[in-house]
Design a protein around this nucleic acid. Structure first.
Lengths: 209, 209
DNA sequence: TTATAATGTAATGTG
DNA sequence: CACATTACATTATT
């Protein structure tokens, strides 16, 4: 059984070249090379070994199928495969090892291009959001101006009004919502419920604009 | 030329074993294995071929150095290297081929982790921007309420006022900035200079709030 | 046609 | 077995 493997193995080294290729290599390629022995090659008897066998399509198909079912190879299945394919069990082992390695690097490439796509999508999203923020800030700026204007108009028109335009409490503590241009605050996950403070602050501020 | 390669090649396979290794392979590794032939290995088909691989550190260093200087290998340098290293030019060629392949996959991994970092940074940025937008929209909402309140107050108190509360230019052409909640506009790279229109629009709208 | 870059595959060797 | 390495083979390109 194993001897058969070896026979096949050896036959692949010494006999017909590319035996499995015959079925799909019909393009006009003479494939004449490899015959330029010079006189030097006397002991070149050696050259003859180490043709790199290349498994037949059938063999590869079966191996692939088996690999698709399970990347690992229990010795039982290995032996079964080996005998079915007429290969040395050692070769089956090696084939699986190499196949796993190949699979891994292919996987990496897939992951890479997937990540790349996500990344590019995110770039676009980020850009959109930045524009959104910019626009909103400008709108905020206009809104504040308008409020200031209205407040001023009111206090002008009605001479005296509330003693303190407001309760005048703390005045710092908040980010200046306007004039930021790009002064993004760093409170990432802020509760985002503070939508009133700035309006109130507005009253506490000697309009600086 | 190629025949010479082959000769040298062969000599490396069959002549002195590990000739280059002798100088620096003295670690205490008996290296006794390789004798565990199972019954399978009877004809030991595998053993006969391909002795002597593994280039010496010195050889690898020089190759590595050469590779560092230039990934491509002009035949001149190839021959020079080959003779300096006592290797078959063919081996040098192959070494460079393989080295390039290795380099490429290493590169891929680097690119991958770099991209991954960028990607994660972007995720965070995106989150920050989304919060920013959310907060700004809430602030806008408050500002609008405030403006409405002031306008109402004014029209109650002072009946008639200035004909144009502002310079009032064009009015339509813009999106409703409030009540959008999440109605992101799609004008990505908009000039982002439109910050007045909405304020004007406010006056043209029967306050709906 | 030759040379070789790029890619794929088999086998070897080490931990 | 994973991983790196060496070598061989095939295909595309010039």
């Amino acid at each position: 059984m194993n001897n058969d493997d070896q026979m096949l193995h050896i036959s692949q080294y010494y006999s017909g070249i590319y035996t499995q290729q015959l079925t799909q290599q019909g393009e006009g390629k003479p494939k004449r090379r490899r015959k330029k022995n010079k006189g030097d090659d006397v002991n070149g008897a050696m050259m003859r070994r180490r043709r790199k066998r290349k498994l037949s399509d059938e063999q590869v198909n079966l191996l692939e199928q088996s690999f698709g079912h399970e990347h690992k190879l229990e010795s039982e299945r290995k032996d079964k495969l080996a005998s079915e394919l007429g290969l040395d069990p050692r070769q089956v082992t090696v084939w699986f090892q190499n196949r796993r390695a190949r699979w891994k690097s292919k996987k990496l490439e897939e992951e890479y291009s997937k990540l790349k796509n996500e990344h590019e999508t995110n770039i676009v999203d980020k850009c959109r959001l930045e524009n959104e923020v910019l626009k909103l800030k400008e709108q905020m700026c206009e809104a504040e101006k308008e409020i200031q204007r209205l407040l001023m108009e009111r206090s002008d028109g009605i001479s005296i009004n509330s003693p303190t335009t407001s309760s005048l409490s703390m005045e710092a503590a908040m980010d200046p919502p306007f004039l930021g241009e790009f002064g993004f605050d760093n409170s990432f996950y802020g509760p985002s419920h503070e939508g009133l403070e700035w309006v109130n602050n507005l009253y506490n501020m000697p309009y600086h604009m």
